[in-house]
Design a protein around this nucleic acid. Structure first.
Lengths: 196, 196
DNA sequence: GTCTATAGTGGGATAGAC
DNA sequence: GTCTATCCCACTATAGAC
């Protein structure tokens, strides 16, 4: 098997280390204000050492970090529908409360990426689109089972829920003592006939 | 009177121009990723020309921009209490929907400023504290008139309202077609015995 | 008041030695 | 695989001419 011993193994490990460090640094300062050198020092090698492992330069590092994290996150939602999906959203928030770095990474990058020139602009556009789709579908499924309060429209409920999620994250990141998961659960329950 | 003619007048005008440009550039790219040179070019002078007017360097520019904007914003809320204050919040959102730059400036800067090392960290900490205080007080005043739905706690309502405000701004900035003002009004009405 | 010139720092990237 | 050396660029800031 490749990547399990000798030279291959060492490379794979280094890439892991670098990704971890890159994640931490990007999370702290965003993409633009972070330097490859900073990441390199965190790993204990030089700038050129890092670039050796990521041929595409700094941008390749960013892409790799994002892909790795997203694969992890979407895993938790796969296969879930309706109320189960909504409950999973609450759980994701609960987990995130223990991972300030992850939240900060996405906040920093998605903020920078509002600029259409930003290398990750399309990535975040598409990501948000997918999320809205998925949450809307979940509310639709609940609606189909008569599980929504009267007059609630799935897409509106989805946008509302996402807004509340983003907003609670913002306040929490700024040091306020808010319970993100409970806040979201409470908010979702405002749309459901029977609370989660 | 000082600042009305001759050399003084020219200086004052230049400072205005520079502040305007600085605001636009900071709004687009945040503080760190913006350069004095970029601002200078927007005004049509050189980098050193700008620094001549703002002795404290780039940081003095940032401070000046923030102070100017905040004075303007807090003006709209002065003297208002209770339901009138909450209604003013909705109105501010309505105005902001026409000023993408302002919203983006605060989003960019407050995101960067989560880092305790950031020059504007304390500024944003204190600003958020003041806002929470003010909104909580407004809900308290409504409570005192029996204007809240049963079981609603003023501070919780305030935090919730702010979260929704931030969240709607986030989605709106990312290009989604959401009506921030109506969203906030709808949300506040969820707490009030009699809707706004 | 604004300029040119320049110092000093730090960024990303490449070539080539070991 | 990782290094040193080097290139080129952009940034902030200062000194001093006009």
């Amino acid at each position: 098997m490749a990547g399990t011993r000798g030279t291959y193994r060492k490379t794979a490990q280094r890439r892991e280390q670098i990704l971890e460090a890159a994640f931490a640094i990007f999370a702290k300062n965003g993409y633009t204000a972070s330097s490859v050198n900073e990441i390199a020092r965190a790993v204990g090698i030089t700038q050129t050492g890092v670039l050796h492992h990521f041929a595409g330069g700094k941008l390749a590092l960013l892409t790799a970090v994002l892909q790795q994290r997203d694969a992890l996150a979407e895993e938790n939602l796969r296969g879930k529908t309706g109320r189960e999906f909504l409950a999973a959203l609450v759980e994701i928030s609960r987990v995130q409360a223990g991972q300030r770095g992850v939240v900060q990474l996405y906040r920093n990058l998605s903020t920078e990426a509002v600029d259409p020139e930003h290398p990750a602009h399309n990535y975040f556009r598409e990501r948000l689109g997918r999320i809205i789709e998925a949450v809307t579908q979940a509310f639709s499924e609940v609606l189909a089972e008569d599980g929504l309060k009267p007059g609630i429209e799935p897409r509106a409920a989805a946008l509302n829920t996402l807004a509340m999620t983003e907003g609670l994250e913002t306040l929490w990141l700024q040091g306020l003592d808010v319970d993100m998961a409970e806040g979201i659960r409470w908010h979702i329950n405002g749309f459901l006939a029977k609370p989660l």
